[in-house]
Design a protein around this nucleic acid. Structure first.
Lengths: 221, 221
DNA sequence: ACTATAACTGACTTTTTGGTCATTAATCCT
DNA sequence: AGGATTAATGACCAAAAAGTCAGTTATAGT
């Protein structure tokens, strides 16, 4: 049962060493492998053994670079989330046109970021296992959610100043603007297999709902 | 370390037996205790030992009534979800007024059901651990999500027929109507501790967004 | 070359927990 | 009352996986 890895080489070649020392490359490789496993099995369900195999190293090597499983996950959050938020923020500052156009620019990016890339994995783990690991949640809130909220609040403040956004409860909680994007991410992760709905349909519905509204203006009033 | 539970009674009373035989009451009690633990620790994280203690029984007793952990969870889904959906469906059929009023009636119920009660626990477990337990996801989709979709589709079809709902991508994916409610449930479960936002604010924003839209009609066009 | 360093390994230890089952005792039946 | 039934118990078992560490070997320095 136990793999003994006896190498029955017909000739000894000094090339192709079984081990390689690559102190610099390891952390990023371990994070990448970790995210793939986390995406597949969640936080608690991920075995470091599998992360190691995926990264092409031994389990012990992970502990050379990361304190424990939680540290590994936190490192992944740091590495992935930071750049994504900054990129989106670039759109908002100094945008000249009407709010409708700004939203049509920002919302697709939101979907892209949330559905593809590793962000949806992190989101899923936060939702599903955040309460078990409060440290992870706090970090994620500070580094991602809060930045996102600020972004949306800036959009709404700008729109209000230009008289393009209705006063009302929706404008008082800009967070709800991104609800359909979150729903899309959840759907892709959870129910895609039961009832596939392409992300583009969510995106189209999202844009339509936010920029045009659901009801015919003044209908049934 | 190990609790020995030696009872040093000063007098022997034949009353108050340590064991009680209550075949009928057990399943519901175990389900209730299970949901509380699931809410606290997720599916994988829940220890049957803790469920037993909360239900005031021994671990072995659980296995008298449920095949295994997964069966327990499925039983909980069945017991909780069925009645909730039926109740909501009652509103839609035969509602006489305009769509705006129907939505104002249905959306608050959605929030109530999703945020309070055990439904949000089930939702969270589906999101976080669904991919690890495909059987659970399939059951949940059939018994809850699908019914919810049908309900929303009926509302939209009715509203279209009455000329009260705009044609467009949002109406083509009625699912997005409930996105803010889901977001609220997630927020309460995940980030309440980091940045509390009362469910009523989500509800108000939701109603406002869906019935009035975000933008001033024809602004910036 | 050859020695020192530390990156790397994987078998082992420890902990945790789902699930089992021989034993105990509450309750029913006659 | 006391015998039969079966609900209930909790010590135990086995599996799984996190985390450790003594030993191995690639690589840099001399």
């Amino acid at each position: 049962m136990t793999k003994k890895s006896v190498i029955v080489s017909t000739d000894e070649r000094p090339e192709a060493p079984r081990r390689r020392r690559r102190k610099e490359a390891r952390p990023a490789e371990i994070i990448a492998a970790g995210m793939q496993e986390f995406a597949l099995r969640g936080f608690a369900g991920t075995r470091l053994e599998d992360v190691a195999r995926r990264a092409g190293i031994a389990k012990g090597t992970i502990y050379l670079y990361f304190e424990d499983k939680e540290s590994l996950f936190m490192a992944a959050v740091r590495e992935r989330v930071g750049p994504a938020i900054l990129e989106v923020a670039g759109f908002v500052d100094g945008f000249p046109g009407p709010t409708r156009d700004l939203l049509r620019l920002v919302i697709p990016v939101l979907h892209e970021r949330l559905v593809q890339s590793d962000l949806h994995t992190i989101l899923r783990i936060m939702i599903g296992e955040g309460s078990t690991f409060p440290g992870l949640t706090a970090l994620y809130y500070r580094e991602t959610v809060l930045r996102g909220r600020e972004l949306l609040e800036r959009i709404v403040a700008r729109g209000r100043a230009r008289g393009e956004i209705r006063e009302g409860a929706a404008a008082d909680l800009p967070l709800v603007i991104m609800a359909p994007a979150i729903m899309s991410a959840i759907w892709q992760m959870t129910f895609m297999h039961e009832a596939p709905i392409p992300p583009e349909r969510f995106l189209a519905a999202h844009l339509d709902l936010i920029t045009e509204g659901l009801l015919v203006p003044d209908a049934g009033r």
